[in-house]
Structures are given as C-alpha cells and as structure tokens.
Amino acid sequence: MVDRQSALAAHRRPQQTSFDGATGVSFSEVWAFSLVQIAAWPETLHSVGVTATKLAGCDAAPAPGRAVFEGTRTLMRVEPLKWWVLSEAPQDASSLPASEASQGAVLDLSHSRTWLRVSGDKAAPLLNHYLPINLSDRAFPVGSVATTAMHHIGVTLWRDEDAFNILLPRSLASSLFELFTESSSQYGYKFT
C-alpha cells in the first residue's frame, strides 16, 4: 500500500532557528501511527478496560486524565468511558480488536489526528502561549493527560519522559503548527 501522507507534509523539512544562540524548542512528528478508540458502556467499563490494557500491553488501565506507556504503545483515558490506544506503528484496520456491541465500540481514528512531540527547555513556555494549563513538573507530571483546547482547537495533550505530546485534529494541524513556529522563533526551534 502507498505511504501515508502527513498533514504537515508542507512543513516536513529540517528546520532550525536559534535566538540568542539557543534552540529552546524541538518539534518532531510521529506521522505513521495507529490510534484506536475503545469505548465501554457504564456496566462494561471494567471488562473493556481489560481489553484496552491487553491491546496496549500495559499492566493496568489508567484513570481519567492519566496515560500509561509500554514500549511504543500508550494507553490513555480520554473520557470517562473511552480509552485511546496509541501505537507508534501503523495498524491494519483488520487487526482492530473485535468488540461485541453489548460490550462497547471500537473505532479507528488513526488518520484523524496529527501527532506532534514538543520538547526542549522552552517547550512548556511555548505551549503556555496557547494553553491555560499548569505544565510544571509538579502539576503536570509524566503520565498526565489533558483534553483541552489551543487557539480554539480541541487537542489531546500528554507528557512522557521526553516530551509533551499533542494530538491535533488533522485538518487544523497545519494552522496550529504555523502558530507554534511563529511563537517559537523567540526561543529558537528545530523541526526534525
């Protein structure tokens, strides 16, 4: 099958700027990934949570607002009844987990989002140009997840050991990325 095209294709070239000799923000895109939504009904929350945990290869399903990581897979609780299983490798639709409607619903959202990773000393200050969320280590430690909005755009944000991760709606990714780079020029940035 043909390669998948990134929503940031027009921006996908090595870029680096510096300000006062510093490059404070690093952007990178995970552009071929799978995102599977697993939704439960109130009475099947536990059993579906187990399914989501198995799919992600994790020990336990996270609480709302939290993520757990296992290798290249991430399991997040994005809504009270919904998990997202994220994998840094594309997944064939036929390999989606089967789910009886009485148990819950499975939905492939792999192409609906753009996955941007933001790291560097100025990553949090940059995101705080648009996000009214305290991103300090104390308030938003590794494993934190927020379903929030930036520049009127609904996004999903989480933090792993190395970076802040953002899932942007694909159609709006380019617009928001342009804003990111414009704001980042005061810190210096690179896009890899």
């Binding site: 095209q5 929503a7 294709a9 027009a10 192409h111 140009h129 520049h151 009127h152 755009i153 694909r170 159609s171 709006l172 380019s174 617009s175 928001l176 342009e178 804003l179 414009e182 704001s183």
Partner: peptide, 18 residues
Amino acid sequence: GRNVGHHFKPLRRTPLHD
C-alpha cells in the same frame, strides 16, 4: 495577540489541500 491576519481564526485544510 497572534489572533490576527490569517491566524484570526484557525484554518481547516482538507487532506487534499496541497
């Protein structure tokens, strides 16, 4: 702030935009 010009509101592009 930066909500001016072409960033006055976010622009949505279709997958076929380019």
